[in-house]
Amino acid sequence: MKLLTLNFLTCARKTCKSAPAAFPLHPKEAELEQVETDLNALFITNMLPRLDWEAMKILTTELGLPALPTETPAPEALLADDGAPSQVLRDLHVLLMETSIASGRLECGSCGHGYAVKEGIANFLLPSHMV
């Protein structure tokens, strides 16, 4: 599961849906995997406006990854002067597209429930008493 996915996920419990603390989910004991992929500059550029930058910063800190800039980069910052992808864009590509969670768990900051990740697949199924 690409790290980017966490931008779209929250706790599966109904009672946590509107709780601000349920996003982002916090990776615990996460084993990360780097999978080399082609750089898609357009994808990153158009994804930027819908990235929750604060959440991405929390994730990089918690995972011990290189820190992100304090503020969301401006669109101009993604291209170097010669029109080639900038270092900022390359760093985002490595973080969002090439870094995957292979195993561990994703913990809700609101209810504390942990969702196991095995073989890259996070399990969001809840026992019936927790739905």
Binding site: T5, F8, A12, G120, N123, F124
Partner: peptide
């Protein structure tokens, strides 16, 4: 033809849309 293709984020084991944030 990978230049024509989308990015695949992954598959989640879950009930319907329950793991998704609202309005995404």
């Amino acid at each position: 033809k990978s230049g024509e293709a989308a990015v695949f984020c992954g598959t989640l084991d879950g009930d319907l849309t329950s793991p998704l944030r609202p309005n995404v």
